[in-house]
Simulated assay, not measured.
Amino acid sequence: LGEKSLGEPTMSFRRPAKRALILDDDDEEEDTSYSFKVLLPNSTSVGLTLHNPGPEMPMERFVNMLKDEYEKARKDCVLMSKRTRIDWNLGGKFHLETNGEKMKGMVRFAVFKPNMCHIIRLDDGSGTTSTMYENLWDLTPDPDLLKEPPENYSFETALADLIDNSLQAVWPFSDGDRKLISVDVSSDRISVFDTGKGMDSSEANSIDKWGKIGASLHRSQKICGVGGRPPYLKPFFGMFGYGGPYACMFLGRRTLVSSKTKTSKKVYTLQFKKEALMDNRSILGKHWKTDGGMRDPTEEEIKLAPHGSFTKVEIFEPEFDISKLYQLQCRLKDIYFPYIQCDELSKTGKTEWPVEFQVNGENLAEIA
């Protein structure tokens, strides 16, 4: 062999020593599950949970799994069996919609957080979509909470329960966000609108907690609610504490709740009828199932809540004498005066208006 120059590489025939393979518990992949509430083309919904599905799944396989779960649910639920059947043979026409974004061909699980429940919509390509879906939310309350309200629980105090919810929602907001509570009362409808942080379908902030008696999103703050500073004042804040759903069923026959957070592109809705809720409970056993869905925000909602979050509670078929509207406005101003006009919050001694409070379009600060 000839001599090699210093710059020429030499070859080594030594095999590298084998490295021992050590399996540590931390190296093992953790089980990952994805849970979905899927809104179907025939205005029903079905649950689906997948364990370790991998990063992607063909849409056709995902739809077939939905079909299996749907057929099981139809056998167990009388209401679903009466619905129009879904044409599962549409193949590539199916796609998913999640928070305003469409997913075609493949289901990409990186879009969803694992070990959480996500609401998605299955679109069959027909061009028509529903905004309300049967039995989407489970509002089953603790039986101990289904007691008759006290004798002095009235129209006024039930409305105050709803307004208390709105106060809790808007009060923590920074000065840059609009703090609005708008109440509209007529002979056929009551509406309570607030610009609080809103609700969506996430586990921590789900709209179904609003509709479940005893599961208020603000329950952790309830201890602070007696005798504290605004907005926790005696005797009206949390005076009865029955919460939104009980107050709504007391005030009217049907309720529609619509809510949106700053991060969600869609408005999530929850609807229940007093009589249907009780009938549904008898059909489904001990569960209170009610309808819900998602939609785009309206122009009016965007105008009232420019920062992007709100909650609107609409109660239909109430019993209210519209001739007593002025008395109601005056009474609400008396109850919530510290939130409408307050000197204690100002460091300069000037009067401040912590919350913009309207009843039928009139600012309560201007009601004499």
Rank of each mutant, 00 (worst) to 15 (best):
E156A: 00
M57C: 12
N99Q: 12
R19V: 10
G292F: 15
V192P: 05
E3D: 15
M294N: 09
E30A: 10
F310Y: 14
K212G: 00
S33C: 13
I335Y: 08
L270G: 00
H51A: 10
K197Q: 07
M278N: 09
K350G: 10
G241T: 04
K312T: 04
D142I: 08
E352H: 14
P230C: 03
I315C: 02
I367L: 07
G293H: 05
R14C: 12
L217E: 14
P114G: 02
L48K: 02
P41C: 08
N115K: 14
Q221E: 15
I120G: 03
V185M: 06
L328W: 02
G125Q: 03
F155C: 07
D343R: 12
D161M: 00
C342D: 13
G252F: 06
D164G: 00
V107E: 04
G198T: 11
Y133S: 03
S81G: 09
R253H: 04
D27Q: 13
S323R: 12
K266V: 00
P9I: 14
E314P: 06
D25M: 09
M106R: 07
I120C: 13
E148L: 04
E301D: 03
I163P: 02
S264E: 06
L39Y: 02
S45C: 15
H218K: 09
V38I: 13
R331P: 00
N135D: 06
E3V: 15
R281H: 05
D334R: 15
R61P: 00
S126Q: 03
D124Y: 15
R74D: 03
K4S: 01
P354V: 05
L40G: 08
L332N: 05
V313P: 07
S35V: 02
A158P: 06
M103W: 01
E352G: 09
S33F: 11
T32A: 13
A276M: 10
S130V: 04
G225K: 08
K37N: 11
V38F: 07
K4Q: 08
W210K: 08
D27T: 02
D142C: 02
G361P: 00
F173V: 06
L233C: 00
L217F: 13
G214Q: 07
F357Y: 14
V313Y: 06
E366Y: 10
Q168F: 12
L136Y: 00
L162A: 05
E69F: 00
W288D: 09
